[in-house]
């Protein structure tokens, strides 16, 4: 039987694979793919041997620096990045949780100054599994299950 791709292949660009299904739209939000002009295709609830179900995003003609793509590690810690050139995978990378999280996560503390004024949020990662991060301003810890993308 002929194998069929659920999400069509791209000639050049980046494939982000092994995204948890619940994190797909957060990944789109963090990487601002909704504002991206080139072709972006995604699939959700796809079969996965390792995860049961997974999501995948394919971004044409867009390549990511480590610092940029590591932002998604907070919501998709096992995501894998494949760089595609002329339909071939030329590089495989695994996302890594950054030491600092700046600007894209909301502090869970409603009384934090960052939720009252136009302040860029800053967190220091203090634990990786499960993720725990300390707000630079209010010093409260945001736990993995409390992470909300701005």
């Amino acid at each position: 039987m002929q194998k069929q791709l659920n999400v069509s292949a791209i000639k050049d660009g980046t494939v982000i694979d092994h995204i948890p299904t619940k994190a797909l739209f957060k990944v789109i939000q963090i990487l601002r793919l909704d504002e991206f002009q080139n072709m972006v295709t995604f699939g959700n609830n796809l079969d996965s041997k390792a995860m049961g179900t997974k999501a995948i995003v394919k971004i044409a003609n867009r390549f990511f620096e480590d610092e940029e793509v590591n932002k998604i590690a907070l919501v998709a810690p096992n995501a894998k990045l494949n760089t595609i050139k002329n339909y071939e995978v030329v590089e495989k990378r695994v996302v890594q949780i950054p030491e600092q999280v700046i600007g894209y996560v909301r502090c869970f503390n409603p009384k934090c100054i960052t939720n009252a004024e136009n302040v860029t949020t800053k967190f220091q990662i203090i634990n990786v599994k499960p993720i725990e991060m300390k707000c630079f301003y209010c010093e409260k810890i945001t736990y993995e299950n409390e992470i909300k993308i701005k």
Binding site: C107, K111, I113, E117, V119, C135, K140
Partner: peptide, 10 residues
């Protein structure tokens, strides 16, 4: 003195 947490750092 300010009622919001983190206001002094900011």
């Amino acid at each position: 003195r300010h009622p919001l947490e983190g206001s002094a750092r900011y």
